[in-house]
Amino acid sequence: MSLLKIQDLKVYFNARGKTVKANNSIDLEIRENEILGLIGETGCGKSILGRAIVGLLPDNVKIGGKIVYRSEDILNLSENGLRKIRGKNIGIILQNPSAALNPVLSIGNQISEIYRYHENMGKKEARIRTAKMLEMVGIDPKRMHEYPHQFSGGMKQRVMIAMGLALNPGLLIADEPTKGLDPTTKDKIIDLICELVINKNMSLLLITHDIGVAEKMCDRIAVMYAGEIIEIATIKNILSNPQHPYTQDLLNSLPKKGLNQTAGESPSLSSPPAGCRFHPRCRCIIGKCLKTHPQLMETEKGTSVRCFLYGNN
């Protein structure tokens, strides 16, 4: 059932003598054929989590815990082992397609090199596979000789999707795939990713701060705050009964609910508040919150939450 299991993941950076705890004790499971949304404010550590899964973090990082992909702990792999997993088993679509495509290589080259490298394909065969891939994401294969600057933002994102899915990985990680796109293009990209992921029986980790997008696509949603997961629930539970006050605030910030902002700023990851990390901004604060750090606990079927207001935390 479980495709990827993250246990007690810690990602710490050293920045000017301070330790930035970008991910702190993350426990997360991505199941087979599931679309899991990872939502949270900018800077809460969600992109770091996505990159940690494929081992694409900078050198000055300290990682602890486990990331198990189909019985293999990714964190124990050598650089060589990691390379075989990247692209082949886990594909990732990075943020900002305009910067994520190499400006001096044609998009056809940038896709076909995946086949040539991982599957030792000849040029011709790789080109045929690339053409198929481009067709699948809705780009005329004739454009394979064109360069990134000749494509619009939405088209570039399609190229990124084609790259991420080129080798039919078991898991696709999409980091803000709809960022910077206009609403119509956004919908098309969402539909495309959903369709492909479902057709190919993959799992998807969708990293986004756009709750509307998450709502549309996901089976389950994990909410991150200040480097921690504070609530994981099925999409139905989250929408009908959001439990953590932060999750409630997030949903209330949607335009249809009146754009209500959560008071205060998101905390610094190098010196987070004691006790519950959300307590300085919380509406429902109780005495315990100031000193004790709550654990992630299952409160009802399909919902786990890190809050003293629920269950026996």
């Binding site: 494929v54 990691l82 990247r86 990075l94 900002n96 400006p103 991982h118």
Partner: peptide
């Protein structure tokens, strides 16, 4: 960032 993409391709 495109170097990161290249790494992500394995």
């Amino acid at each position: 960032e495109y170097i990161l993409t290249a790494k992500a391709k394995g």
